[in-house]
């Protein structure tokens, strides 16, 4: 795998070229190579002045929340992430003489996913949000632990067992045909593999990254923006929503609804 950095032109800042897997590939390389959109496609990335970026992100966030797709789990979490990114961008760029430009993906017109993930980590470090919001924001970088559930006397594998289940969440993205796809995976982690294999009916699949994690719910939505802010035309669609019968998906939805990124940009803008 080669990463070519474009130091001069206004085109893509870098290009990742996939090569055939070698024995010497590191775990990271294998992981990146396994992700078709990171490795196979050329990312075209643009940068914006942070205040312009905040305006753009704010508009997109508002549109997602107002759309019907905003009720879906993945866009809901993505809207939180955008809100948190706005908050941290404003905090980091308070000094107008010392600002840093914000990366946007040219194809989707949305903030660059990896840069947003980094911003979310900064947000968590700076604002120390409540544990569940922290986990949701952190899940844009990998499997984050939302919380634990004590499950006593589960008889799915015959004999009753007491389990301590870890609820995990992960958000990933994909850019395909000019559309940005955001996917939310809800996972259960347990040492008891029999429980993971037998308890979750209708829908469950093993996680590729964690052998003790089983994915029990998937929410996938797509976003397509046309025009500078997506104001020319935008489309939000729910692509996939499925979950195991044993998962109380409404409880999870309720948890997400209760979360809030304090002092959102709207509030700050209103006060100015």
């Amino acid at each position: 795998m080669k990463i070519k950095i474009n130091w001069v032109g206004r085109g893509p800042l870098w290009t990742i070229e996939k090569e055939t897997r070698k024995e010497s590939d590191t775990e990271l390389e294998v992981l990146l190579a396994g992700h078709p959109n990171l490795a196979a496609q050329n990312y075209q990335i643009n940068t914006f002045d942070p205040f312009e970026a905040v305006r753009r992100i704010g508009f997109i966030r508002k549109e997602i929340s107002a759309s019907r797709a905003g009720f879906s789990l993945a866009p809901k979490a993505y809207a939180f992430a955008l809100n948190a990114q706005i908050k941290i961008l404003l905090a980091l760029n308070q000094n107008p003489n010392l600002t840093s430009r914000v990366y946007f993906d040219d194809v989707s017109g949305l903030p660059s996913f990896s840069n947003m993930a980094a911003d979310l980590i900064s947000y968590c470090g700076r604002f120390e949000p409540e544990p569940i919001l922290k986990a949701v924001l952190d899940s844009f970088s990998g499997w984050a632990v939302l919380g634990v559930q004590k499950f006593e006397g589960c008889r799915c594998s015959g004999e009753p067992v007491n389990l301590e289940l870890k609820m995990r969440v992960h958000h990933s993205h994909e850019i395909k045909d000019g559309k940005f796809f955001i996917e939310q995976l809800l996972g259960i982690e347990s040492e008891n593999k029999e429980h993971l294999e037998r308890h979750y009916n209708k829908f469950s699949q093993k996680s590729k990254t964690g052998e003790n994690i089983v994915i029990v719910a998937v929410s996938k939505a797509s976003i397509k923006l046309v025009g500078e802010y997506g104001d020319g035309w935008h489309e939000f669609a729910v692509e996939e929503e499925k979950h195991s019968d044993e998962i109380d998906i409404n409880a999870w939805r309720l948890f997400l609804d209760r979360l809030s990124v304090k002092d959102s940009v709207e509030a700050e803008m209103a006060s100015e």
């Binding site: 980590i121 968590c124 470090g125 544990p131 569940i132 922290k134 986990a135 952190d138 970088s141 990998g142 984050a144 632990v145 939302l146 919380g147 634990v148 559930q149 004590k150 499950f151 006397g153 589960c154 008889r155 799915c156 289940l165 870890k166 609820m167 809800l186 259960i188 308890h199 019968d245 044993e246 998962i247 109380d248 409880a251 999870w252 948890f255």
Partner: peptide, 24 residues
């Protein structure tokens, strides 16, 4: 990724089984 919280919040997302519902 960030280190996980020291005290994990309780989050009951796995529904109780029929057996558990009955016993409850």
């Amino acid at each position: 990724m960030l280190p996980p919280c020291k005290t994990m919040p309780e989050l009951n997302l796995v529904k109780p089984t029929e057996y558990e519902k009955l016993m409850a």
